[in-house]
Amino acid sequence: MTLLAIDNLETDFVSRTLDDEIRVAHALNKVSFEVNRGEIVGLVGETGAGKSLTAQSVLGLLRAPARVVGGEAVFDGRDLLTLPPAEMNELRGYEIGLVVQNPRTSLDPLCRIGDQLVRMQRAHRPVNGRVARKKAVDMLAAVGIPEPERRMRAWPHELSGGMAQRVLMAMALINEPRLLIADEPTTGLDVTVQAAILDLLRQIVLERSMGALIITHDLGVVAHYCERVAVMFAGSIVEEGTVDAVFETPSHPYTRALLSATPERLKLGSGRQLGGPPPDLYNLPIGCHYRDRCERVRDICTTPPPATDLGEGHRVQCHFAKDLEGQPL
């Protein structure tokens, strides 16, 4: 069942240059994807591709100079993009949980962990204090924090990075949201800690048949924890599908380049040119935005690439998707 359906989401940056000229960048370009119940969807791409911006647009957390200019994001029959701020606030943290990247800065340093968890519940519904505290303790235990009763009284600075990230997860889950959006939930954590956090996330999503969107640049996380994946480049989703399909038969040149750039597949000394300058959103090439960096660029790439459906929801925005499908990297 579809929880969140993002359809043709478009977000612009409007800014002024030092020379006082107005510039508009199409930071998100017809972004469409869905998150279903009981699945984790991965959103991957390099810095500036628009991963976090997608989440911020959907959650109404955009700040100037960014603003949504088109599309819709339907959650529970309501379009989040046109929801009044008060209703959006009500949804956020209640029906939609949010885990942000930096646990250190997202906890209130002057408030004990337990109080923050209670506050989180009371922000949305009047709850009896004892009930709220009981639930907070249970939640801390559920995210794998030892001695949850004692930890309720801990200050944020007393927590290690991994523990702080668990607390943040508890904050996001305490109101039993139906959708969880996690922006780089394990970036900066040690691998052994990352493993524990992700195991927990998957277990909770399955148990509660929630939906989750994980924004990450770590393809290993996507490969092992997500059901489906959307690959972003320069504000567009260039490839989307089940993790197996995208990782086994990557059919967009960018996805293919990304996969061959992972250390596990990288062949040092092959002399192959990987990467390239980050796309300039204010000056994207006409047609396919990836064509300046693409190995397979042809004349036709100056026209917008069609969305090619390779079956079972595996969609690719490339003129050559069919040719590339199933070819070795």
Partner: peptide, 12 residues
């Protein structure tokens, strides 16, 4: 042109 517009930009 750049110079004057840059001054304008700074002033803004």
């Amino acid at each position: 042109n750049v110079l004057t517009s840059r001054i304008k930009g700074l002033a803004r």
